[in-house]
Nucleic acid binder design. Structure first.
Lengths: 336, 336
DNA sequence: CTGTTAGCGCATTCAA
DNA sequence: TTGAATGCGCTAACAG
């Protein structure tokens, strides 16, 4: 591989490297004549500045890490896009990473981000497994950090978080109070996932408030994939006689839809169906699927604003922003 | 921000920076004693090597750029994941970029990749707008390059490409020959997109071969988004009396599904419906949607192998790998 | 307005 | 087995 350097451009333009640098960074004054020659040299030699060298010199990479569980999830993709657009306004580039909800990969990506000397990290971490490393990042390395979705006790940084427990509760309660459901099947990610724990708590709270005994036959914990959503919906329908199904995310939700389709179980006629997250697919075709609405959906923009604030204003008193949830009534629960 | 350096680790461990470097890179011999002290120092000081400094020294960043039109598209997401897994086997990290099919962004990302001194680029570029830059990359900078989806005449690098024209032809011909359709509505991306051109050609060829006159009222070119898929399906249905709809990608496809749903047009009863790409959503619920099957679906792995070959074996005779397409019959066209 | 100098953090010579 | 010296490409300080 072969790359032109600043020095080569300088030589070609008949000036010093410093002048070229100032031209590129638009710092200080440069004569028209020099500017022209430099521009020509840059084009002639196909010069592209080395980000590595620049980052070393400036103690700043101009990169923000955006780390999410999955890019196969519209919710997170929107966050990335919003954050990227916002950050670009301030001249930052984004490195996109997905953890696949894997603790080792999460750790690897965080360490990689430190090694890249990124100027900030926006992350959706749904377990506590990286908390120690996150503490190093924010306290020792002092990299501006924004965590999304849930609070990590003991990691003192900016947060944008949802009321997962409350959300699961109102969704469950809707099924109980409005549609008189008593046997609500729930499909959840494994409990090492804190979001899962919170949604599980919300479900149980709704039952308790409404005098329904918790039946652990109706609750399934499994790895997040469509196949599991399908499989466990089939099993619930076959063996557990549920009068409703509540999937904790859209991946499980699509598995459930497939199961309903194959078993010729129609919602809401034969069973009520609700899912936590609000996605495109929920209203792709009728019956529309009941879910929860994030009152402020701009996680990505909010997160970007928080990092930028930390960087530019050197703010270091952490902020916590709570995202409200409300019912997003469709037809799948039995309404309309 | 504050980061520990190799020198600080060396001081803490009571040895030279060189020894620490050799320890980290597992190169050359090191006494057990030294190794232990160094490891302790690394942990105590939270040392994470600077990728920037390393890249400068080694003329190699260990990064491969994977550039795709959209991360909101399962086809590309799979490519990313496959490539990432494969590349990690060889010790490479991946930088993920999406161009949103925007020529300026495409150029920006390519230049950014050069500036990062990436060790290779895997890209799906569906226009010819960056061909000049791609030539610089492969001929001047000599960065290993693999292009996906379509051939770019004049860019001499590795390719993994599909028979877009053939695919559109057999899909159209299926509608004509098997289901006796004569007025097939087609929704395509704008023609600056080469994939679009090829699929359009395939459509026309199928009509011609079967003695059907081309009617440009039935063909729509528009920007790729769901709203356009919806809008143009509605318009076709209302005004153009089509007996089939062919959407050129899944984004348009979901828009079409929404339009069918709202207008209470049932496929395949009222109209035939086919879409080019094979996605999860096609078989999420019945009727399953007829599409094209990529005989070798591992674009990502193939691409990673090609870059690795270029890097490790210093291969520079370009390879072209063609991906075959075959009909993937569902029910939406009218077949059972 | 421009050039000279120094040093960012690291890996790679070469000596010892 | 280890240390000292060097330089990757760039920008910031300082001189001129």
């Amino acid at each position: 591989m072969a790359f032109t350097t600043l020095n080569e451009v300088a030589k070609e333009a008949g000036c010093s490297a410093n002048t070229v640098s100032r031209y590129i960074n638009k710092k200080g004054y440069i004569s028209m004549d020099a500017a022209e020659k430099i521009q020509k040299a840059i084009e002639k030699l196909n010069y592209y500045p080395s980000i590595n060298a620049r980052a070393m010199k400036k103690y700043s990479s101009n990169i923000i890490s955006v780390i999410i569980p999955s890019i196969k999830n519209d919710f997170y993709v929107e966050i990335i896009r919003e954050a990227e657009n916002k950050l670009k306004e301030y001249g930052y580039n984004v490195m996109i990473f997905e953890t696949r909800s894997d603790a080792d990969k999460e750790k690897y990506i965080l360490e990689l981000s430190i090694s890249h000397r990124v100027d900030g990290i926006i992350m959706s971490s749904i377990s506590n497994l990286s908390d120690k490393l996150l503490n190093t990042i924010t306290n020792i390395n002092r990299i501006p950090l924004v965590l999304m979705e849930i609070l990590h006790e003991g990691v003192d940084c900016d947060y944008i978080y949802m009321q997962n427990e409350y959300g699961a509760m109102i969704l469950t309660e809707h099924l109980i109070k409005i549609h008189d459901k008593k046997r609500i099947g729930l499909i959840l990610p494994l409990l090492e996932n804190n979001v899962s724990i919170q949604r599980f708590e919300g479900y149980k709270k709704a039952l308790e408030k409404n005098g329904i005994k918790y039946d652990d036959n109706l609750v399934v914990f499994c790895e997040i994939n469509k196949a599991n959503g399908y499989k466990h919906t089939v099993e619930l329908l076959k063996d557990k006689n549920p009068d409703a199904i509540f999937t904790s995310n859209t991946i499980f939700g699509t598995g459930a839809i497939k199961a309903f389709d194959e078993m010729k179980v129609k919602y809401p006629k034969d069973i009520s169906f609700v899912t936590f997250d609000e996605y495109d697919i929920n209203t792709l075709f009728h019956p529309y699927i009941t879910s929860l609405h994030r009152v402020d959906k701009k996680f990505g923009i909010l997160a970007a604003d928080l990092v930028i604030e930390q960087i530019l204003k050197k703010r270091n008193n952490p902020k916590k922003i709570e995202i409200d949830l409300s019912l997003n009534i469709g037809e799948s629960c039995g309404c309309k």
